[in-house]
Amino acid sequence: MLSTKYTEKTKLTKDEIDRKWWEVGDYFRRNSLWLLMYCTGCCAVELPPSMTSAYDMERLGMGPMATPRQADILLVSGYLSLKTLRRLIYTYEQMSEPKYVIGLGSCPINGGIYHDSHAVINQLDQYIPVDVYVAGCMPNPESILNGFVDLMESIKNKTANSWKKYRDNNEWYKQNQKDALGEVIIHDEFHE
């Protein structure tokens, strides 16, 4: 039976409304993740099988995209030399928020077999924040797809906040980047 007593409707605050919209957006975001493949290393060779008929990435709503502006995920596949790191950061900063980073293989985690090279960085998350690592040298397609599913889970649980981290701790990241790369004056498109 309906109560005759008048109860005031609880008005949602602006933050709550924003959060609700954000949750709705999260549903769409986790079901349509577009990749920008930064194929620097050998792990890239595992991507074609995970895209095509054998494992079919598209059934998760994922697919490759041409430019960083369109993409949601920056997929770093393999080792990163200092020269490519500079370009990786440039690309990462061009992506539109919210954006996620996946590190593929052991090289972005600890340097992998290149851990003692002078030209290769060892830990990717010193320079840009990483949401999901897929370990292995190289990881096979199953584990790559598993990594994608993990990312979706963490978007659902609101733990995929790397892009916020990059914004909040921007100075720290910038300092690390500067320490590794140094400041470079660009002369023209071929010489740094």
Partner: peptide, 25 residues
């Protein structure tokens, strides 16, 4: 046709709404 499972039939909607929800430049 390519012997894949293929995406959901409403995948295009999800794509569009996702794009609308992002912060662009």
């Amino acid at each position: 046709l390519q012997k894949r499972h293929g995406p959901r039939w409403y995948q295009e909607f999800i794509d569009i709404f996702k794009l609308l929800s992002k912060r662009s430049i």
